[in-house]
Amino acid sequence: MSDKKETPKIGEKRKDSNQPLILPGIHRYQFFTNLKDRGWTINLDRVALFGIVAAMLSVVIKPLLRWNPATIYCYECRACYATQDRCPVGITLQAELVVAARVLDYDRFIRNGGLKCIRCGNCQSYCVQYLPLPEMFSVMQQETRRAMVNGVIPKDILRRALSQGLVGKEYIDDVAKTVA
């Protein structure tokens, strides 16, 4: 670099010959995150960091407030998928239900058959931590029922669930009433 410390113009190639060409497959994205470069985006960076921390906190606090704290422990390793046909109602993606219960994602819960679950506990034995999956699903089922009554869940989601047979007999009256 010259003593005058001139800022090179954007778009020009470097002239110094000892700068090696980049090896294929090398990712140097972090060159752009050099501290000196953050002048014009410093507030944006702060807002982004605040957003990241807030999102992480909400993922932890939400299940605590909704009395479903065990969902926090899920590794999301999907070992529970091995339940397969040992699930009497044919739920195949149990971890999706746990994540849905953690963040209160009603669509994901219903789409993956959460309202079909009879809480038999067969999937629990496949969990590497033996987490109480039936209890988690039960809490989320109650939350979903409450949300349905309050009209929070779009009717299209419920209609689709009905047409695809994703609602168990325990909840079918509630769902039918809401859709009607």
């Binding site: 800022t7 113009k9 954007i10 470097r14 060409l21 980049i22 140097r28 060159f31 470069d37």
Partner: peptide
């Protein structure tokens, strides 16, 4: 999926104000 060589754009990042 990488730039072939470091451009001025990146150099200015490294030596920016």
């Amino acid at each position: 999926m990488v730039p072939r060589s470091l451009s001025k754009r990146m150099t200015s990042t490294l030596s920016g104000p």
